[in-house]
Amino acid sequence: MKKLILLLVLLSSSAQAEIYDINEFSLENYRGKVVYLDFWASWCKPCQKSFPWMNDLKSKFPAEYFDVVTINLDENSQDMHDFLQKVPAEFDIYHDANGQAAQTFKVEGMPMSYLIDRDGKIQSRHIGFYEKKKAELEKEIEGLL
């Protein structure tokens, strides 16, 4: 029984988000994969709405070829942790308190996402999250795979 509980705990924790510091972020880590890169913050309502979809997205495509990577822009990391308690995430998260990555990627709105191809080139940029655009984005990802 104890083993079963342990197994369940292990299984349930495996799908949780890994949180890294922004200094560990490099697109090199995801070379060879199509990446959906998303910038978000805990105070941003549309970002919250995009979370279930990003979780779906990650499980929809094979992990060898596709990944969802997000960058959190909360100045205070506690805000991020509180948010993640309420809204589950199953993808990698990099915490960028100073917005250095946001500056590099020239983020123009929140949330903002980038589709990056296997060679690490940005193929498209999307400002905001719209329910209507989900299908279009999924098609775009399929095209890049």
């Binding site: 105070w43 946001a102 983020v107």
Partner: peptide, 11 residues
């Protein structure tokens, strides 16, 4: 204010 710096303003 940059788009990602609006945290305090949105409180």
């Amino acid at each position: 204010v940059k788009p990602w710096e609006r945290g305090s303003l949105s409180r």
